[in-house]
Amino acid sequence: MSEGSDPSSADSSPDESRTDAEPSESASERDAGPDDGVPERNAESPQPSPALPFVGAFLTVVVAGLHLLHPSHGLLKLFVILNADPGLLVFDPRSFAFVASGIALLVGLSLSRNAPNRRPYYLAGIALALTYLVGYFAWHFTGHGGFLPGREPLLHGLSPVENVVSHLTTDVWAAVSKATEIALVAVLTVLYRRESSESDR
């Protein structure tokens, strides 16, 4: 061994090369992370809108109010009929149907606020809104309830389809009511499906 050579330098060089390689190796492991290559479900899955239940509640109140406060068949009209002759409801039950269904909507909305399972309330709201829609078109398509006993069809000289279109285009209250009912059915259907999917997880 020649003079000036340091034995420890030969022994320490492999260790130094190993220590130099170790930080790069650990850094790559830190960069990789345990979750690399695994898609995050929470990040990719769409989050439900928290505002949708409030939209459904708002539409429910609007639909109920449109029927309770209807200028021709709402609460005031029902009081007039009951004071005059309740038997008149047999020939035109719209006032009773409007008031009873409007109250039912508000009661169902109040009960659903703290209900552990809101799906029955969603279904009831959907069924009631569809009843409004079907009932309106059936009433005007048959000439103002021509299917009821003691009522003659009244189509104003129009075909059944023309009669329905005429009422929708000339009665703003009815047009707003039908549009709101369709929106309510759509929102409650989305809420029902969302709660059903969450309960199945």
Rank of each mutant, 00 (worst) to 15 (best):
A43C: 05
S8C: 00
S24R: 11
V38H: 07
G150K: 00
L188F: 15
V62D: 01
P153D: 03
S197N: 05
N83V: 02
A10D: 07
S28H: 06
A64Q: 02
G108M: 13
G56M: 10
P116D: 04
H167K: 13
S177I: 08
H167T: 12
A43T: 05
G74F: 12
F79N: 11
I81Y: 08
G74C: 11
A51D: 12
S5H: 01
W173L: 14
F79Q: 14
A183W: 06
D31E: 15
M1R: 07
H70D: 15
P116T: 00
F54A: 14
E29M: 14
S177Q: 13
A129S: 12
S45N: 05
S17W: 00
E25D: 11
L75G: 05
P48E: 05
P71Y: 06
T131D: 08
L78F: 06
G33V: 10
N163C: 04
S166R: 12
A32E: 14
G65K: 00
E152M: 09
V185Y: 09
R18K: 04
G74D: 10
P86H: 06
D15K: 07
H140D: 07
L109M: 12
D35L: 08
L76A: 14
G33C: 12
L89S: 12
V176F: 15
S24W: 03
L154H: 05
L75P: 06
L154R: 06
L106H: 02
L69Y: 04
P39T: 01
A10K: 04
R119L: 04
D171E: 14
F96E: 15
T169N: 15
R119F: 00
N83A: 13
W173C: 08
P14A: 09
P71D: 10
S24L: 13
A124S: 09
D171I: 11
D85A: 08
A32N: 13
S110P: 03
P23L: 14
I182T: 11
S72F: 10
A124K: 04
S197E: 07
L111N: 03
V90W: 13
L75Q: 10
D35G: 01
E195Y: 06
D171F: 11
P53Y: 12
L78P: 05
S2N: 02
D92W: 07
P93C: 15
L155C: 03
F98R: 11
L88A: 12
S159N: 02
P39W: 01
T19V: 11
V55T: 09
E29Q: 15
A183M: 09
H67Q: 06
L184Y: 07
S28E: 13
R201Q: 06
S5E: 06
S166T: 12
V38R: 11
R118Y: 03
S45P: 01
I126N: 08
S24V: 05
S5C: 00
P34K: 02
E162Y: 02
D11R: 08
K77Y: 10
V90C: 08
F98K: 11
A129W: 00
S5F: 01
L133A: 07
Q47F: 03
S26G: 10
H144W: 04
S95I: 14
V99G: 10
E40N: 09
A104Q: 08
F58E: 04
T189C: 11
F91N: 15
S28G: 08
V187L: 12
R193K: 07
G108S: 12
W173D: 13
P48V: 02
V176G: 13
S12Y: 00
D15S: 03
G157L: 04
Y121H: 09
A127R: 06
R113G: 08
P149G: 01
